[in-house]
């Protein structure tokens, strides 16, 4: 049976113009990696939105996924929040199992 290890998964939806600020903070916080995923469309407090046809970055959102050790999660979240406090975005934290614990 494969042994798994408990980690925290941060899922951050952020405005595209603020993406570099966010990834800079993740790097500074010492996360070992992250994955950026495009998102297509959705609905929020200001109504529906869609990335289709947009030539500029405003109005576009992206998702950043990062797996971190539970001991570091609070410190990483504080850094993330310092960027996102004023921006449009969603941050969720969930428990996940990973196979290779030393990667995170």
């Amino acid at each position: 049976m494969v042994v798994t290890h408990l980690k925290k998964r941060l899922e951050i939806i952020v405005e595209a113009p603020a993406l570099h600020r966010l990834t800079d903070r993740l790097n500074q916080a010492g996360v070992t990696g992250y994955t950026i995923v495009p998102v297509l469309a959705g609905r929020g407090s200001d109504g529906t939105w869609s990335a289709e046809g947009l030539a500029g970055d405003a109005g576009r959102l992206v998702m950043v996924i990062s797996i971190v050790d539970a001991a570091k999660a609070d410190a990483v979240l504080e850094r993330v929040y310092s960027v996102l406090a004023r921006q449009i975005g969603i941050v969720t934290v969930s428990d996940v199992q990973v196979i290779r614990a030393d990667h995170f």
Binding site: A55, G56, Q87
Partner: peptide, 8 residues
């Protein structure tokens, strides 16, 4: 294009 991104 440029200003909306800068305003965000």
């Amino acid at each position: 294009i440029a200003v909306p991104a800068a305003m965000r």
